[in-house]
């Protein structure tokens, strides 16, 4: 589904502040994979997502999506295949527009012509979709999105992203900005939607329990490299303790100051 070949990303190339955030990365994602991505701040997790979605381009190397090279394609050209959710609940919706407008905007991808698709049947189907969230939003389709709470907005963003049927779902700490109750709620919805649709997913998380509990593969990034990659059966056996041991073995250094452990 996604293949990165010897991808390198250096910011400020040729300046004093030159910094390589992704180093010679080879990485392949199979169709139907649900990969959790962990690593401390600055490990390159978000940069990896930015490279896949095309909001930045690699300094070296190739990126392929669905077998097609997209290394230099701008973000909007790849967007048909990719659904991305950010940490900020405001990033996925248009605040000053109604729920139904937002849902209409995200209901199909690609260039939009001036034709009216927001019909009664469309509104009814939005209502049905929103019911799945069990947040009582079905009666609020004509309200602006900025009247919703952060948790509701993120749940709505998730719903809108999933119903646009992307090939790849990128979740960038999408529950980190929510309170614990809403975070669990959005996480449960995430799991349900991914299972229902069999979506190929990459999820960055700082929550070690989530990283171990969810998905069929776990990668840990450190200083721009994937240092741990646990798949399938091995992933099922994985515990937090084992993961920490693996990290210490590889890096010959302790884990203690990494905030990966902060949310346990």
């Amino acid at each position: 589904m996604i293949r990165l070949e010897k991808v390198q990303k250096t910011f400020g190339l040729g300046t004093a502040g030159e910094k390589t955030v992704i180093r010679n990365l080879d990485f392949e994602v199979e169709k139907g994979d649900f990969i959790t991505v962990v690593g401390s701040n600055g490990a390159g997790k978000t940069t990896l997502f930015n490279l896949i979605s095309g909001s930045i381009f690699p300094t070296q190397g190739k990126i392929l999506i669905k077998g097609k090279e997209v290394t230099r394609d701008p973000e909007y050209k790849r967007a048909k295949a990719i659904g991305r959710i950010f940490q900020d609940p405001l990033a996925g919706t248009a605040s000053n527009m109604t729920l139904e407008d937002n849902m209409m905007i995200t209901s199909n991808k690609g260039f939009k012509w001036p034709k009216i698709s927001l019909t009664r049947t469309m509104r009814q189907s939005f209502q049905e979709q929103v019911k799945q969230l069990e947040m009582g939003l079905e009666s609020r389709l004509k309200e602006n999105v900025n009247t919703l709470s952060g948790g509701q907005r993120q749940a709505l963003t998730l719903l809108m992203t999933v119903t646009s049927n992307p090939d790849i779902l990128l979740l960038d700490e999408h529950t980190a900005a929510l309170d614990p109750r809403n975070a669990e709620l959005v996480m449960a919805l995430t799991k349900r939607f991914i299972n229902e649709k069999g979506l190929t997913t990459l999820m960055v998380t700082h929550n070690m329990n989530h990283a171990i509990e969810f998905g069929n593969r776990l990668i840990m990034m450190d200083q721009g490299e994937i240092i741990i990659d646990v798949k399938q059966e091995a992933k099922k056996q994985l515990t937090k303790k084992r993961l920490i041991e693996m990290f210490s073995e590889i890096k010959k250094r302790d884990f203690e100051n990494d905030e990966v452990l902060l949310t346990s």
Binding site: Y76, A79, L90, A91, G92, A94, S95, T106, K112
Partner: peptide, 12 residues
């Protein structure tokens, strides 16, 4: 409202 949303929708 949100230019990122437009790009995410596959529109330039």
């Amino acid at each position: 409202n949100n230019e990122q949303m437009v790009r995410t929708q596959g529109v330039n």
